[in-house]
Design a protein around this nucleic acid. Sequence first.
DNA 1: CGGCTTGACT
Length: 328
Amino acid sequence: MPFLHSTSTLVALFHSQSSKPSKSQLVRERGPVPSKPKVTTLEDALNLFDEMLQRRPLPSVVRFNQILTQVSKLKHHSAVISLNKQMRMLGIASDVYTLNIIINCFCHLNQMGFSISVLGHFFKLGLQPNVITFNTLTKGFCMMGNKNLAIQLLRNMETGSCKPDVITYNTVIDGLCKDTLVGDAMNLFSEMISWGIAPNVITYNSLIDGVCRLGKWEEATMCLNKMVSQNIFPYVCTFNILVDALCKEGMGMEAKSAVQMMIRRDIDPNVITYNSLMDGYCLRGEMDKARQVFDLVVSRGWKCLVGNFFLIPLLVVVLLTVFAKQGE
DNA sequence: CGGCTTGACT
C-alpha cells in the first residue's frame, strides 16, 4: 500500500514538472519557491518575525498574517496582539485577514470590548468586515457566556448585508446546547433551514451533544436517523459524543454497543473514544473494565494514538488513576 | 497574481 502511494506521488510530480517546464526553470534560477514558514514554538515565530523585519523590501502583509496565525494556534494570543502593534508602528498595513486574527485573539483573551473596537479599525482602513469577522465575534460572545449578544448579532446579520452562513448558525446552536438550551437550539436549527442554509455534520454533532447532556437518548436517536436520511453521515466525532455522554451517565453497556456500532460502520474508534470509555469506568470505580479497555488499546498497538500526541498526557493521567485505585 | 482569517468531540 505505501508503495502504491509513493508511486502515484511520483507520477503526479513527474506530470506537474513536464506540464510546467517554466516553473522548474524558475526553481533553478531563484531557488525553491518560498513555502509556508514552519513554526513550532513561540521563539521560532518571534525570530522569524524579527528576521522578516530586516528584509528589504519588507515582506507582504500575507507573510506576517501567516506568522500571526501560527502564534495564535500556539495560543499565545497576547503575543499576536503585540506583534500586530509592531507591524502598525513599522507601517505594515493590516488587511481583513489580520484584523480577523486580532479579533479572534481578543475573544480568546476574554476581551470582547477590544474585539468590538477592532471594527473601528476596519472602517479607518477602508476595509469591510466579512462573514468571518462576525462569526468570530459570535463565537466570542458565546465563549464569554453571553448567548443573547450572540443571538442579537445573528439577527443583525440575517437582516443585514453580511448574511450568516452555516458556521454562524453552528456557533450559536453549539453555544445554546452547551447551556442546555436545546429547545432554542432546535428552533434555530429550523430557522436556518428556512433561510436556505443547509445543516452539516457539525450542526448535528452539536445538537446530539445537547440532547445527550439532558439524557434524552430517544431524541439523540432521532437526530441520528434524521441526519442519515439527509445523507449526512455520523463519523468518529459523532460517535465520541454519544460514547462520552453514555459513559458519564453510567451506561457502560450502551456505550460499548455504540463503539461496536461504529466499528460495524467501518469507523475506527480513536484515542478520544477509548479515553471516554476508561474515564466512564473509572468514575464508577469499575477498574477491571477500565483495564480491559486499556489492554485493548495496547493490543491495537497504540495505533489510535498516532496523530494525537497531545492526548497522551491525558491518557497517562487516566491510567495512573486506574493503577492507583487497583493498588488500594 | 494570490496567498493569510471563523465552527464540533476528551
